[in-house]
């Protein structure tokens, strides 16, 4: 379980998050949406322990987060940087050696599903293929928490489709919780259980997506637009 208690994060010139309280339980795919700079990436990095809160506490399964929480958390960065000297196969082998929960067979299965050649050098991969590789490395881990920062951004529709299908195929919702930040709401709205809407460092909405459709007859984009405009009470 992921828990935020009065979490704030300030950078040099900017308040990134303000007094966030949040509890997320396993078995769900949760979308983090909101405009650029609203605090989506910051939220994920805090859970991954790659940054530390300025105030408050973040815990994963009751453990206070440091970078070593990566034992329980798989983090897909929005950055495309890799160790360029590795081939796809070597990178997978390296990850397998570093994370005890990394499932080699599953990685092979996802790699084939993503149509990535094991012997291509990472530094020669296209942006789309690097995006696919990130999915392989992240989803091959049998880990309770999966964080994905903009897994679809800047990729062409075919790659986006493959990634969304890959997510559905290889996530284990019996055990995992998946957090995805994205701008491509349309692409992921059919696979989200819950959605968190962030604006100016604050969570201004937390909804079950099917209930939103059921009770308010709203799609995600319409809801986001409404809440952002202030037409809709930000129920949490």
């Amino acid at each position: 379980m992921i828990k935020f208690e009065h979490v704030g994060k300030r950078y040099l010139k900017k308040v990134a998050l303000k007094d966030i309280n949040l509890e997320l339980k396993p078995g769900k795919i949760v979308g983090l949406i909101g405009e650029n700079g609203s605090g989506k990436s910051t939220t994920l990095k805090l859970i991954a322990g790659l940054i530390q809160p300025t105030s408050g506490v973040v815990t994963v399964n009751g453990r206070r987060v440091t970078r070593r929480i990566s034992e329980h958390v798989a983090y897909l960065s929005e950055l495309d940087e890799f160790y360029g000297f590795f081939t796809v196969g070597e990178m997978i082998a390296f990850f397998a050696s570093q994370y005890p929960d990394f499932n080699r067979e599953k990685a092979e299965e996802i790699r084939r599903f993503m149509k990535l050649a094991p012997d291509s050098k990472i530094k020669n991969l296209s942006k789309g293929n690097r995006g696919r590789l990130k999915i392989v490395l992240t989803l091959a881990r049998e880990v309770p928490v999966v964080l994905m920062d903009e897994p679809l951004s800047g990729l062409d529709p075919m790659v986006r489709d493959a990634i969304v299908k890959g997510l559905i195929s290889f996530i284990d919702l019996e055990r995992q919780i998946v957090l995805i930040t994205t701008h491509e709401i349309k692409e992921v709205e059919t696979i989200l259980d819950e959605v968190l809407l962030i604006k100016g460092g604050e969570i201004i909405g937390h909804k079950n997506v099917e209930e939103l459709r059921d009770r308010e007859n709203l799609g995600l984009v319409e809801w986001m637009t409404k809440v952002y405009a202030g037409d809709c009470p930000p129920t949490v």
Binding site: R67, R68, S70, E71, Y75, S77, L79, E81, Y83, Q98
Partner: peptide, 13 residues
């Protein structure tokens, strides 16, 4: 420097 998200996201001390 640019790969800290890989280097630091490690369970190793």
């Amino acid at each position: 420097r640019k790969k800290l998200h890989l280097w630091l996201a490690s369970p190793l001390p």
